[in-house]
């Protein structure tokens, strides 16, 4: 029991959970509206887009890479879908979603090939594709909004599940949160129960050993970028289902926020470490900071300050803990 407790306190996830609980309690004391089902659904709905992308970023980080191109991929997919729906208003939701995910997967495939075939460092390769794709999309749209989505599409975004009485209203869970949950489950299943998923952890932990035991490192690396692209595509659908139109400029620069969520959730940019549970906590923490500060009348301008400080403190504490443990390591069995 003591050991379990020790492991719990050691894990980064628990410290993030603790921060969330403390923040939630403080905010609720000042403004009881915070801790209601309807508010929770609201904030999670608007953060589901970042959440889905962060779940795509997670395997990339675990494998020891990084994907700066999620911002351009989500924009690309959103615009492709917008144009597609304008041209084919008689299509259906399944086609729309599949289209986005396929386009995203192709964008990811390009990254994967640049990294594995041409040995370009991931940070540079994805920066390059980000620049190119973002510029191409903006060139094509000229930065103009796309609207006029078919009604059947927009009404799909208003679907809610269940009926929970909350704060005098009856609310259901928005479909966007369902997307987030499904993606979370899928990512968890992949990471936990497929050989590919275990390969991602193995490659991020020790590339040499991974090769030695027979993992195909190139295939694993290519997969994580395809997966990240695919989820950026799904995030594009989710976004349009909320905002109901497409602004090609909103997502420029969002890749760092996405990485921040994954890092807050305990993923390591050095690879090998990260969980779906942690990433969910990262999403919730981000949502609580954004929404909670507004509810307690702290100017929203403090959001980024709080995020920055939390990132700096959690990673510093982690590094210091590791160093203390390393110093305790016994090198020689000294004769007493």
């Amino acid at each position: 029991m003591q050991k379990v407790w020790k492991n719990l306190t050691k894990s980064k996830e628990i410290s993030i959970l603790a921060i969330i609980v403390v923040l939630a309690v403080c905010i609720t004391i000042v403004n009881p509206n915070f801790l209601t089902v309807s508010n929770f659904f609201d904030i999670m709905r608007s953060n589901s887009i970042y959440g889905i992308m962060a779940l795509g970023m997670l395997p990339v980080l675990i494998s020891g890479g990084i994907d700066l191109s999620v911002s351009s991929t989500i924009t690309l997919c959103a615009v492709v879908m917008g144009k597609f729906l304008q041209a084919n208003p008689g299509s259906n939701i399944v086609v729309a979603i599949l289209l986005c995910m396929v386009v995203g997967a192709l964008a990811g495939l390009v990254n994967g090939l640049l990294v594995t075939k041409f040995h370009i460092p991931p940070i540079v390769a994805t920066l390059g594709t980000q620049t190119i794709v973002m510029a191409a999309v903006l060139f094509y749209t000229n930065g103009m909004w796309i609207s006029g989505m078919p009604d059947w599409f927009l009404s799909f975004g208003d679907i809610q599940f269940g009926a929970i009485p909350s704060a005098g209203k009856v609310v259901g869970m928005p479909i966007q949160i369902l997307f987030l949950i499904l993606v979370g489950i899928a990512t968890w299943l992949i990471l936990k129960y497929t050989l590919m998923g275990r390969g991602i952890y193995a490659v991020g932990g020790n590339v040499q050993s991974a090769t030695r035991v027979g993992y195909n490192v190139s295939r694993v690396t290519t997969f994580v970028y395809i997966y990240s692209g695919t989820l950026a595509g799904l995030a594009a659908v989710t976004d349009i289902l909320i905002v109901k139109q497409i602004d090609p400029n909103t997502f420029s620069g969002c890749e760092l926020d996405v990485i921040a969520i994954a890092v807050l959730g305990g993923a390591s940019v050095m690879g090998g470490i990260g969980t779906v549970f942690g990433t969910f906590l990262g999403i919730i923490l981000m949502a609580v900071i954004k929404n909670g500060l507004v509810l307690v009348r702290v100017s929203s301008y403090w959001q980024k300050v709080v995020m920055g400080i939390i990132i700096l403190v959690t990673i510093s504490v982690d590094v210091i803990n590791r160093r203390i443990e390393k110093a305790r390591l016994v090198h020689v069995d000294v004769e007493e």
Binding site: I66, Y301, G308, I311, L312, I315
Partner: peptide, 30 residues
Amino acid sequence: LIAYVGVTAMLVTLGTKLLFEGLGLVVTKG
């Protein structure tokens, strides 16, 4: 943070990027 605490530069500057941006916003109110 990078040299003495020993945190990866990428993470430190991701954190300080948000921190500096936030401080700027607080002063200028956006």
